[in-house]
């Protein structure tokens, strides 16, 4: 609905109708307020819990209690190390591992999906259509159902307990859909640019690197953000392929809430850790919202 339309309607509003409008507006605000409270309460609870001393959830007050304010959970995260002689704490080490995975994954996914997106958008070759469908179909197979085989492959090549090699699996999982997205985007770029460049003597690879790629910034941004975000919170693969000494941050956080793992168990430490981790991720998500909304629209339209 638009402002124009309101003026049309508002022109001949009676007194009671105006009252009804105001009531309606109040209902809207009431609904929004309640929704926002529901959204915010768990988050606020998490924040309060992260500053509560002890290790019991039952000790977390409903309202912030500043007399018992503590930073012990944050201190724990930044100082506690289960290994003797380790330079950085378990939390920071696992964070850095996840960060390195995310960065490498972003690069690999962008490069590979841009190339295959280009191929699928610009070339005609036999079996193109069915290949794309096969790609997307294969992606539907959740990666942990093939876990035994992935474990085998990792063991054969000696990649177990080496976090960076997880990128292979993350990238493989991300390529098909991203290829599909990028292909959809590149198809909207006019073919005449390619042809003009080819006439000027550019090779296919030159066309790709110098013309198509710079024009696809927004969709590649979306793909990149997604690729950067995906590995952070994956639990399954690292749980099977990495040991405690090489855990990722998601594993570390999960272990903080697992009563079976007495080495780490403390739900309040988890709250602090989750807050520390979620804040930058949330900020990045918000900052990249433009890309993401764009990509979602592209996915919804073309996908």
């Amino acid at each position: 609905m638009s402002r124009n339309q309101i003026t049309i309607v508002e022109g001949n509003l009676s007194r009671s109708a105006r009252m009804r409008r105001r009531l309606l507006a109040m209902l809207h605000y009431a609904y929004l307020t309640i929704t926002c409270i529901i959204v915010l309460v768990p988050i606020l609870w998490m924040i309060v819990a992260s500053f509560t001393p002890g290790k019991l959830l039952s000790g977390v007050p409903l309202l912030p209690d500043f007399r018992h304010f503590t930073l012990e959970h944050y201190r724990y995260l930044f100082t506690y190390s289960s290994q003797t002689g380790a330079v950085i704490s378990d939390f920071l080490a696992s964070f850095l591992r996840s960060l390195s995975i995310a960065v490498v994954n972003t690069v690999v996914v962008i490069v590979l999906s841009a190339i295959s997106g280009y191929v699928f958008s610009r070339f005609r070759f036999r079996g193109k259509q069915s290949l794309m469908v096969t790609f997307l179909l294969l992606q539907m197979f959740p990666s942990f159902m093939g876990m035994l085989a992935i474990f085998m492959i990792f063991r054969t090549f000696g990649w177990l307990n080496k976090p960076l090699y997880l990128v292979f699996i993350y990238a493989t999982g991300a390529i098909p859909y991203n290829t599909f997205l990028i292909r959809g985007y590149m198809r909207s770029l006019p073919l005449s640019i390619d042809e003009a460049a080819m006439i000027d003597g550019a090779s296919k690879l030159q066309v790709f690197f110098k013309i198509i790629l710079p024009l696809s910034g927004s969709i590649l941004g979306f793909v990149g953000v997604n690729a950067f975000m995906a590995p952070w919170m994956d639990y399954m693969l690292p749980n099977q392929l990495l040991n405690m000494q090489n855990q990722t941050v998601a594993l570390f956080l999960f272990r903080l809430t697992d009563p079976m793992i007495t080495l780490y168990y403390n739900p309040l430490n988890f709250m602090a850790g989750a807050l520390l981790l979620a804040t930058p991720i949330t900020i990045v998500q918000f900052y990249m919202q433009k890309f993401i909304v764009y990509g979602m629209a592209a996915g919804a339209e073309k996908g």
Binding site: L138, S143, G146, L148, I153, F168, A171
Partner: peptide, 16 residues
């Protein structure tokens, strides 16, 4: 891309 998909998607699926 094909190689990655073959190795980390197709082989695990066939294995399963």
């Amino acid at each position: 891309s094909f190689a990655l998909i073959l190795m980390f998607t197709v082989i695990p699926i066939l294995f399963t």
